[in-house]
Every structure is written in C-alpha cells, then in structure tokens.
Design a binder for these strands. Structure first.
Length: 471
RNA sequence: GUCCCCAUCGUCUAGCUGGCCCAGGACGCCGGCCUCUCACGCCGGUAGCGGGGGUUCAAAUCCCCCUGGGGACGCCA
C-alpha cells in the first residue's frame, strides 16, 4: 500500500457527465495503479444549487462504472467549522484580512482594470486597514505581492504565473461561509490527498490554491489538469452539446466496461493498444501518457468498442440484461408470455451482431415471439416468398418435420440433400427459408437459428408462410 | 480586453531524449475475401504533421512569430 491518495470532487449541481466520469476514472486509475486510495468528496458548499438528486445521480453513475471509492463519502458542507478554523488561523498569522468593500466598489475596480488593458482584479485596498469581524465584510487572502506561483503539472509540465495576475481572493463570504478555493485546500490537505487530477478549467484555481497551502505551511500536492472533452463541432461539451449523463449511456444499452474503455482512450494511451481489461488498466496507467490536448467525443468509436465487449460478454449476464430491457419495454405481464427461456441459447448467435444491449434485445425478438406476432418484412416477403419459393418450402416441410433429432447438423443435412436432389443452388432455398422463419433477410446462420428456435416453432412459421402468404 | 493552455489522417491517437517516419495503429469510409443473408473475422485502400521563419548534415520532433481552437478572469464550484 503506497501513500498515494487521489480524489474526485464533483459539485452536485447536475448529473455526472462524460467529462466528469473520465476525470473520475483517471483519478481512480492513478490511485489503483499505485496501490493507493481513491476518495470521493461532494462539493456541496453552494446550497443554492446543490441537490440531493444530483448527489444520488453522481453516486449511481460512479457505482455503475465501478469506480469504487475508499472510505466514506466526504461532504464539504459538513466541514464548514474546520474551514472557518483555518480562515481564522490565516487571519491571525497575517495571511488574510477583513475587507468591507462593497460589491459595487469591487466591480468598479475590475472594470477600470479591464478598461486599462489589465486583468480585472481587486486592488487590495483593505489589506492594511486592520478591520475586524465587526466590519461585516469578507475575509480575503493576502496573495504574495511579488514573484510567481509555479508547479509542475502532471500532464502539462512546468507551469507558472506571475502573482500580478492573481488578486486577493475571498476566503470567507459575508454570510460567514467558506469559499470553494479555501475549502478545497483544507479538505485536500485534511484528507491527505497527494495527487489532484481535475479538469483543465481548474488551472487558474491551482495558482490560487498553492499560496494557501504555503501560508498554512502545508505540503502542496501534485496537480494534473486534463483537457476538456469536445463535441463533434469541437466546442466544449456541454449539456446543450450532447454532454449526456453517463446514465444515458446505460439506457442506450452500453456496457459500463465499454464506456470506461472508450473513455480511457480519450486522452490516454498505451502505445497502440485499444482494448484494455480493468486489470490491465490499473497496472498500466500513468499520467505520463495523458494527452494535453482536448479530444472530441466520437459515438461511432464507442459503438465499435461496445461491440467488442458484447462479443466477449458472459451469456448469463446478457440474458439478465436483455430480460430487464424487454420487461421494461412490454411490461412484466406481457414479458411472461414470451419465451424468455430461449435467450441463453439465442444470445450467443446474436452476440457478434449486436452493438449494445438494446440492439441485442431488439434482435432477440424473433426468437421470443410466437408466430402470430412475428413481423414479416414486406419487401423481403415480396422478393423471396415467391410462388416458386413457397412451393419449395411446402415440399421440404415434411422432410424437416421428419428429422429424427432436431440439431444444427441434421437440419443442414436435410436442407442440403434437398437442394442437391433438385440440383439447385443453396441460396435459392436459404433466403426463402430465412424469411419464412425469421421474417427478414438478415439473421444469424440459418441452421443454428432453426435449431435454437426448435422444431415446433420453425415448422409453424414455415407452414404459416405457405398458407397465409398466397398471392 | 488580460492571463494561461493546446495544435499529427474526418475522429481517437503512436511519435516524446531530432535521422529507423516521403509518419504507425484504431474508429469511420471505400474495395475484396469468407459466405445461406446480415454481422463478426481477415486482407487491401483512402486520408494527416495549420502557416511562416529559424537551429541542424538532418525536424512531425528543438526555438520564434502568426493563425486557429480552448480555458480562466465571481461573496459558483
């Protein structure tokens, strides 16, 4: 067990989207790859916007992805006393001060600075005024007046910014509550976090947080900032821009490990390898090969990845998932009438053909329904169930019926000997039989499909076609 | 406006200590093979170092400028 501690710290103002999930994944992998701990902290200090629904949604998504955290979930809002304690210490040690400038005053300062072509910032006029708690204002941090703040980013490398770019950020609001930047520093320190991996949009915060660590005499953790995920138009992925909740991907039928694998390749690489098991990932992950440039989310590649995982997935699991989907779609009562028992035999035939679970459920349909509910594709019927074809079906039906043991091999033997006798091409028979049995021109192998479907259902379907599809 | 970051096929990326790269893999797309259809699989093809200057015998790789994109500048996180 190393002393590596990482964390994921979402603010519960909405669902966990794909970008957040990836950040969480990288942090999780960083911890796991070093035998360390991965902590979860909910940053709910904004009471206005934080909701229990969002917290639940985030937790649910983390669970679905299998990104388990060590220990209890931390709630930032529950640590306000500790935050305030640190703020008081900072004031006492002269690293922070009270300020009662009005919002309007500060806005004016910023506007002025902006107009003068400088970076908008508070000018620190209350720094040496020696105000106390009775001033009714806020507490600000005394940002160093000269020099630069620098650190080595785990993904971007050496980074530095001149302190002139920073201003005296607020530590405690006028309502007495601690602000984000202060709370994060205190929490990360108290939780023993050694490596902070977060989104690119936090780089500026890093430069503001490091001086706080230093003022407290605390060890500064390592920081790494991963680039954003972009939409197809190369704009930042937002809720408007297809930044879906990770749970939406579950609804669409994607396996969590496929989503995870897709996500990890979005910004991280291990040579040319595309598919990784979770074990490989925890063994191979390094921040060294995290990309420093933003990447575009590509649903097509996710689909491909998903297909890879569908092929290798356990049949029992797929059976359970497909059953769930069908029960959800048609209702439990209706689902009971379906021949769900056939699923474990049917699914292996469908696996190489399905992109995801919903797809698999859809394709399972032809095995589940009774002939009366089987949908026949109109153009397929027109094209292949011609009078000649139906005559063939009618002729072969008794022969199929007479097969002693209904197996893939015996079905194939029966059909092949039939066409040999007729001196026909196998294709001439295959498509009509396929359409008769499955309703469409696309299906798994004919013999295996018929074998799984069973003699009775197969024959019923063939007879129906002969009788009902007369022109 | 100011500061920071980024820049290889349409997309994800390998390339990081310069020569093995007239740039490799994957998705997609196109063609073929397999074949009872569709998939899977296999084979082949398409397509890229944003632009301009340097440094060097040699640059996708190092430096500078430009351009383009992104992010940040809150008593939000």
């Amino acid at each position: 067990m190393s002393d590596t501690v990482t964390r994921f710290a979402p603010s519960p103002t909405g669902f966990l989207h794909i970008g957040g999930a990836r950040t969480a994944l990288f942090s999780w992998l960083l911890a796991k790859s070093q035998g360390g701990k991965f902590l979860l902290r909910i940053e709910d200090t904004d009471r206005e916007r934080s909701t229990q629904e969002a917290i639940d949604a985030i937790l649910e998504a983390m669970t679905w992805l299998g990104l388990d955290h060590d220990g209890e979930v931390y709630y930032q809002s529950q640590r306000a006393d500790r935050h305030n304690e640190v703020i008081d210490q900072l004031v006492e040690s002269g690293h922070a001060y009270w300020c009662n400038c009005s919002k309007e005053d500060v806005d004016a300062m910023r506007d002025k600075a902006r107009a003068a072509g400088r970076k908008p910032k508070y000018d620190g006029r209350c720094r040496e005024r020696g105000l106390g708690p009775d001033c009714g204002g806020v507490v600000r941090f005394k940002t160093p007046l000269a020099g630069a703040v620098s650190y080595t980013d785990m993904v971007k490398g050496p980074s530095a910014v001149n302190v002139e770019e920073l201003d005296d950020l607020i530590l405690r609001r006028s309502d007495g509550g601690p602000t984000y930047n202060l709370a994060v520093v205190v929490d990360d320190h108290d939780m023993g976090v050694t490596q902070v991996l977060r989104g690119d949009d936090h780089v500026n915060n890093t430069f503001r947080q490091i001086p706080i660590y230093e003022a407290m005499g605390w060890q500064v953790p390592s920081f790494g900032h991963v680039p954003m995920i972009l939409g197809p138009d190369k704009k930042k992925l937002s809720k408007r821009h297809g930044a879906l909740s990770v749970m939406e991907y579950e609804k669409m039928g994607y396996l969590p490990e496929a989503v995870l694998n897709y996500l990890v390749r979005l910004g991280w690489s291990h040579g040319d390898q595309e598919v990784f098991t979770r074990e490989e990932l925890t063994r191979l992950f390094t921040t060294d090969t995290l990309s420093s440039s933003p990447s575009v989310f590509d649903l097509q590649k996710l689909e491909w990845m998903s297909g890879q995982y569908m092929q290798g997935a356990d049949v029992n699991r797929l059976t359970a998932e497909v059953t769930k989907i069908i029960e959800f779609e048609v209702g439990r009562d209706e689902a009971e009438k379906l021949n769900l028992k056939i699923l474990p035999k049917a699914i292996p035939l469908l696996q190489p053909r399905a992109k995801h679970l919903v797809d698999l459920a859809e394709q399972s349909r032809l095995f589940l329904v009774d002939v009366a509910f089987l949908m026949y594709d109109e153009t397929a019927v027109k094209k292949f169930l011609t009078p000649e074809a139906r005559a063939l079906l009618e002729e072969i039906a008794p022969q199929l019926e007479a097969i002693e043991e209904w197996t893939e091999a015996s079905i194939e033997a029966c059909l092949r000997s039939f066409i040999d006798e007729k001196e026909l091409k196998f294709k001439v028979l295959a498509q009509p039989v396929r359409v008769a049995v499955t309703g469409t021109t696309q299906s798994p192998g004919l013999f295996e499909t018929m074998a799984v479907l069973g003699r009775e259902q197969t024959m019923t379907r063939m007879r129906r076609v002969v009788e009902d599809f007369g022109l």
